Computed example of a mutant assay.
Amino acid sequence: MSRRDVNDIRRKLLDQGVALLMEQGYHGTGLHELVQSVGVPKGSFYNYFPSKEAFSAEVVKHYIDPFIAQLDAHLARTDVGADAALRAYFDELIADTERRDFKGGCLLGNLIGEIGDTSDLCQTSLREAVRRYRDKLREGVARGQAEGCFRRDLDAKEMADFLVDAWQGSLLRMKIERSVRPLTQFRDMLLNGYFRA
């Protein structure tokens, strides 16, 4: 099998892992179901990942990358300020959760709640993913501070941490309320309120 084929199968397993872990959680997702859905023999799973735990840690990294790229694309825009770029980014996420009928939430938050304190490997992967995401948000907050639209009496890193924490809580509330209201309230109260200069 060529390196390209190996990478393709690995990517398919990770893509399917995101979908299954979002829908069923860590404990509800079996390797048999995973490999069957991708068309890979069960025994060959271990040619790609040493364990389910290691696989899940890789899924976390695979999951967060598109969100960071999406956020980066918004922040790279020079025709809008950082406040508008962050708002547009969160607007996209809010619209996506509504399209998905409020299902799923965030894989990071889901796994943090389910296995965050029981698997050192997954805990490390989750921590790294949250920090990478926070650091990208910090770029936007710092730019907003430099542009004069966000308050400067708070550290950009602390404000970005607060964004991550508040967003995760809002996603959990969205799931039980089955409404985007917690998400829009998060966006408006922070980006248009507490963070404003």
Rank of each mutant, 00 (worst) to 15 (best):
V164H: 07
A76N: 10
L14V: 02
I64S: 00
A54P: 07
R87I: 03
K52A: 03
Q168P: 15
A73L: 11
R99Q: 08
D120E: 13
Y46H: 01
R138S: 14
D96C: 09
L75I: 05
D72K: 14
L93A: 07
L13S: 03
V180W: 06
G116K: 07
D120Y: 13
P50W: 14
L190H: 05
F49I: 02
A129V: 12
E177K: 08
Q36D: 15
R100H: 14
L111E: 03
V59H: 05
E128G: 10
Q168F: 15
I9F: 14
E98F: 04
Q24E: 07
V164W: 09
L14P: 00
D72W: 08
P41F: 02
S179I: 00
R4N: 12
K42G: 10
L121S: 12
R87S: 03
F67C: 00
V40A: 10
Y48G: 06
Y89V: 03
A82R: 04
S56V: 09
E147H: 06
P66H: 01
V40G: 02
Q168Y: 15
D155A: 13
S119A: 08
I64V: 08
L163G: 09
F49L: 04
L93P: 10
G105M: 06
V59A: 03
T124R: 13
A82Y: 00
A95F: 09
F90V: 04
C106E: 10
R77D: 04
R100E: 09
Q24P: 09
T124G: 15
V60L: 00
L13E: 02
F195P: 14
A85Q: 03
L107E: 01
M22F: 13
A166Y: 06
I9V: 13
G25N: 06
D15W: 00
N110L: 14
Y48I: 09
F195E: 04
L183M: 08
H62T: 05
V40S: 07
A156G: 11
V164N: 05
E98W: 02
N47K: 04
T97N: 11
D165C: 15
A54N: 09
G104R: 00
Q70T: 07
H32F: 15
D5Q: 12
F67L: 01
I94F: 07
M189P: 13
L86W: 00
K61I: 12
R138N: 14
R87F: 01
S179L: 01
M189T: 14
F90P: 01
G43I: 05
F186K: 02
R131Q: 07
G30T: 11
G113A: 12
H27I: 13
A88I: 00
R143D: 11
D8A: 14
A85F: 01
D91G: 12
K61Q: 11
A85C: 06
E58D: 09
K52E: 04
Y48E: 07
N47C: 05
D91T: 10
L31N: 08
R3D: 11
P50Y: 15
V35D: 11
Y26M: 08
E23R: 07
F90N: 03
P50A: 12
M159N: 06
F195G: 12
E53F: 08
V35Y: 13
L34A: 02
M22P: 03
D120A: 13
L21N: 05
D161E: 15
D72A: 13
R87P: 03
L75A: 06
A95S: 07
L190Q: 04
S119M: 04
P41T: 01
R138F: 08
A88E: 00
H74W: 11
L34F: 00
L163D: 03
C149A: 15
N192Y: 06
